Structures are given as C-alpha cells and as structure tokens.
Amino acid sequence: MARAGAALAPLLKAGDVVTLTGALGAGKTTLVRGILAALGHRGEVPSPTFAIVQPYDTTSLPVAHADLYRLEDPSELEEIGLEDQLLDGAILVEWPDRAGEAAWPQALRLSLEALPDGRRSLTWAVPGAWEGRWPPPLVHP
C-alpha cells in the first residue's frame, strides 16, 4: 500500500479528492503514509480517527487526511471545513460513506481489502477528472 501511495502522490493536484474504502486493517492509513512520504512529509502520520482531519503541509502540496468514521450524520461534514482544503490542496478521505452518497462525485475512489494470505488488494473507480492520470503506467524495476 505504501508503494501504491507513492505512485499516486505525484499525480495529485489542488482540488483533488481521493476516497479510501476498506475494513479496519485494510491498509488505508498505510497508503496515506506512502502518499505523504512521497510528497516530502518526514514526520509521523497517525490515523486521524479522533482528530477527524489532520492537515499536512508537504513540500509540494498541502494535503488533509480525514477519517470520517466517527461522523454520525453527513451534515456534520460542513463543520469540519474539508472543502476549504481543496482551494490549494488535496484531501484523502477514509470512511467516505459517512459523508453520504453525493459527496465528492469527482473523487478517485480507492477500495482496499486485506486478503487471507496477508497481501492487500487495491481496486478503483476513476471519474472523468482522473482519466489519463490513474492508474499510472506500470513501472518495472
């Protein structure tokens, strides 16, 4: 998941939303750590479950990491101010279903799954705003 995050990082631009769906332990926060490391963040990246939103001023793009697990109603999203982050940065959203079906129609939607053998599966839905950017071309070592 960290490598997938590193592959996604250079594709992000201001106004982008990436949603991350998957069960606990599927690798959502690991993927976010890979994105942030590739964007130049060198500090700790805790899961924002209790803070709900954790902003990062990376060297190339401000990024807000949101965990909506504790939201009880989509109307609570307005109080958080995530949309303001899109003016000059990107947002990465765990548990996007808590925001409601209509939230972020142009988001790159990533789904993560922990497989029985310990590996992780990553699938996606690509909206028009991401066509030609995701998935990145395969790079072989």
Rank of each mutant, 00 (worst) to 15 (best):
Q85E: 15
P74Y: 05
R33I: 01
L12S: 02
L92I: 08
P74M: 06
V18R: 03
S121W: 02
W104P: 00
L68D: 06
T49F: 06
G100Y: 10
R33C: 04
T58K: 00
E113G: 04
L87E: 15
G128R: 13
A14I: 01
L92M: 12
G118S: 09
A9I: 11
Y56P: 06
V17I: 15
R3S: 13
V45N: 05
L112P: 07
Y56C: 05
D73P: 02
L82H: 01
I80C: 04
V93A: 08
P46Y: 05
A129M: 03
G118C: 10
E72H: 12
F50T: 07
E79I: 03
G15V: 05
E78T: 08
L71A: 04
T21M: 05
L39R: 14
T29A: 05
I91W: 06
L36G: 08
D97C: 03
P105A: 08
D88Y: 04
R119I: 00
E78R: 12
V45R: 04
R98C: 09
L108R: 01
M1F: 06
H65W: 11
S60C: 09
I35S: 04
G81W: 05
E101G: 05
A4H: 11
R109E: 13
L36W: 01
T19L: 10
L86G: 05
A23C: 03
A38I: 07
L71W: 02
P137L: 13
E94Q: 09
T21N: 12
P10V: 06
G81D: 09
V45G: 14
G40M: 09
R70M: 10
S75Y: 07
A129R: 14
D97T: 10
H41A: 12
A7D: 15
T59N: 01
W134I: 07
R133D: 12
A129G: 13
W130F: 09
R33Q: 15
P141V: 12
P46D: 02
E131R: 15
P96F: 09
V63S: 04
R3A: 15
W130Q: 10
L82I: 14
D117L: 02
P136W: 15
G5V: 10
D88V: 07
L61M: 11
D97Y: 01
D88C: 09
A37L: 11
